[in-house]
């Protein structure tokens, strides 16, 4: 049975995300995610099977799949791999057609992607080798401060004087945070300082680019307070994507369907 259904699998550093796209109706049918675990390929297989089952579908009903994320070459459910830079661009284009740039902050990297008028990637910049400016940085500090990730924004909102976090390395930054705690600094001020530190590093990736509509994607976009911190650093409005964690998977599914001109080399890969 050909159902014109395509899957996008985003095997990221922290989680596996899957999106199902119905090409005939031009809609995202469903998205779901699970932790990355050790065996990424097996987890992706199981997650895809669950998602398909909810629609009464089997693997044979899929018309194609594209994998993205750091584990894209390890995921056997897709026969084609496309980088998350391209997939996020396509996903953002689908969800926010007027977007001219996107910021994606994931578990282990962050990126600023400039989009052309037709939605393709015009250019991009990514964080350097260290984890500063990534979700991992935020996780380490949140854990150290004993503040749940989903309460970081509320905590930062209590800040009266955000602390200055100057260390570029996540390990040194953690030491710096320990020092601030020892000096009696309020947790709220430290959280606000850490968020601003990440935002500043990511804003630096934008360089001189003057994008009008910036969309924020990736797992960190769901952390309250980060959007505001980015806006302060960029001096421009930033909108969180409609489904920020799933944008890459959605883009991968759309690319699998060959529905986006932004990645013309992508071909349908029939099962």
């Amino acid at each position: 049975m050909s159902s014109s259904i395509f899957a996008g699998v985003d095997a990221g550093s922290r989680a596996i995300k899957i999106a199902l796209f119905h090409a005939g109706r031009d809609v995202v049918l469903e998205t779901d995610a699970c932790d990355q675990g050790v065996d990424q390929a097996a987890r992706a297989e199981a997650l895809l099977a669950r998602v398909l089952a909810r629609h009464g579908l089997k693997r044979d009903d899929l018309d194609g799949a594209v994998a993205t994320g750091y584990g894209r070459h390890a995921v056997g459910v897709a026969r084609q791999a496309v980088t998350e830079i391209t997939c996020h661009a396509v996903g953002v284009r689908f969800l926010h057609p007027a977007a001219t740039a996107l910021i994606d902050i994931g578990g282990q990297d962050s990126k600023f992607v400039q989009l052309a008028e037709d939605g393709r990637v015009l250019d991009f910049a990514m964080n350097d080798r260290c984890a500063a400016g990534t979700g991992r940085f935020l996780e380490v500090i949140a854990q150290r401060l004993e503040v749940p990730l989903d309460q970081l924004g509320a905590c930062a909102a209590q800040a009266d004087r955000p602390a200055a976090i100057s260390s570029m390395c996540v390990v040194f930054a953690e030491s710096e945070v320990v020092g601030l705690l020892a000096a009696g600094e309020r947790v709220a001020n430290i959280v606000a300082g850490v968020q601003q530190s990440i935002a500043s590093r990511v804003a630096a990736l934008a360089g001189a680019a003057r994008a009008k509509e910036i969309i924020f994607t990736g797992g960190v976009a769901g952390v309250s307070g980060m959007r505001e911190a980015l806006e302060r650093s960029l001096g421009r409005p930033v909108a969180v994507a409609a489904d920020p964690r799933m944008t890459g998977a959605i883009g991968a599914a759309i690319l699998s369907a060959g529905r986006d001109r932004a990645c013309p080399q992508t071909r349908r890969m029939p099962y």
Binding site: T83, A116, R129
Partner: peptide, 25 residues
Amino acid sequence: SFSAAMRTRLEALVEAARAARGASS
């Protein structure tokens, strides 16, 4: 430790360059 990240960056560059082929804009 950087090889996967290096690969991603280069692949993304290649994808962007391919996308630019024939792009009207």
